[in-house]
């Protein structure tokens, strides 16, 4: 049983429907503890991405209440949303990197947004890029890197701002086994440092032998 005080994400009777015929999920109650690493799984189209999108306010739920890092999302105005997003790092399957900017600039974008000083930002970016093993490729452009490297850049961008939550939406979907393992190791490292990770995937192999909590989305409900 997770106590309310220690939960970083909490959902109470949350539903999302696009129309009466298109209900993604309904009546979801869920609590995720600070520093927890949870897998969110289910077949394609079941609503994993939608749930993550709701967590960082790219979409709003149809009904119910959600708390993220102590903030009630329904009370959040559009102008306040960017400040919540700075506490959340998001990683996607398709990396979402700016192809016309260097690796350094892509990662620095997160710090530019919060207005961190140039020197401090440079230090922080280099530190993070070293952490993901890309310190030698700072001046490269995304398309000059392999898929695994691009995903590591995306991870670096997500964590450079030191967020308390990482939302990873199928981050290994485009990677081979070896690159997938690299990404998983990075995630484990981040979690070991106290970052809460919600890892959405449809690949059962990633959590086959794990002790982590696995949340299964099935027919609009979560089963643990």
């Amino acid at each position: 049983m997770i106590s309310f005080e220690s939960s970083i994400i909490r959902l109470k009777d949350v539903s999302k429907k696009y129309s009466t015929d298109n209900v993604v999920f309904s009546g979801i109650d869920l609590e995720i503890e600070k520093g927890e690493f949870v897998f969110l799984t289910g077949s394609s189209g079941v609503g994993k991405s939608t749930m993550l999108r709701i967590f960082f306010c790219a979409e709003r739920p149809t009904s119910g209440e959600i708390w993220v890092d102590g903030v009630v999302l329904s009370s959040l105005s559009n102008a306040q949303v960017p400040y919540l997003r700075r506490k959340i790092g998001v990683i996607f399957q398709d990396f979402k990197l700016l192809s016309n900017r260097t690796i350094f600039d892509n990662v620095a974008l997160s710090l530019e947004v919060v207005g961190l000083g140039k020197k401090q930002a440079e230090q922080r970016v280099m530190q993070v890029l070293e952490g993901v093993g890309l310190a030698e490729k700072t001046s490269h452009y995304p398309l000059q890197l392999s898929g695994g490297e691009q995903q590591r850049v995306a991870i670096a961008r997500a964590v450079v701002n030191r967020p308390s939550i990482i939302l990873a939406d199928e981050p290994t979907g485009n990677l081979d086994l070896q690159r997938t393992e690299e990404v998983m190791m990075l995630m484990e490292e981040l979690n070991a440092r106290g970052t809460t990770i919600i890892f959405a995937t449809h690949d059962d192999r990633l959590f086959e032998n794990t002790h982590r909590r696995v949340l299964r989305l099935l027919n609009g409900k979560i089963r643990i």
Partner: peptide, 16 residues
């Protein structure tokens, strides 16, 4: 559009 989407993702304000 993609650039705007990414900026939004990392918490950029509308003014930014």
């Amino acid at each position: 559009q993609e650039e705007i989407e990414i900026m939004r993702l990392v918490g950029a304000t509308k003014m930014f």
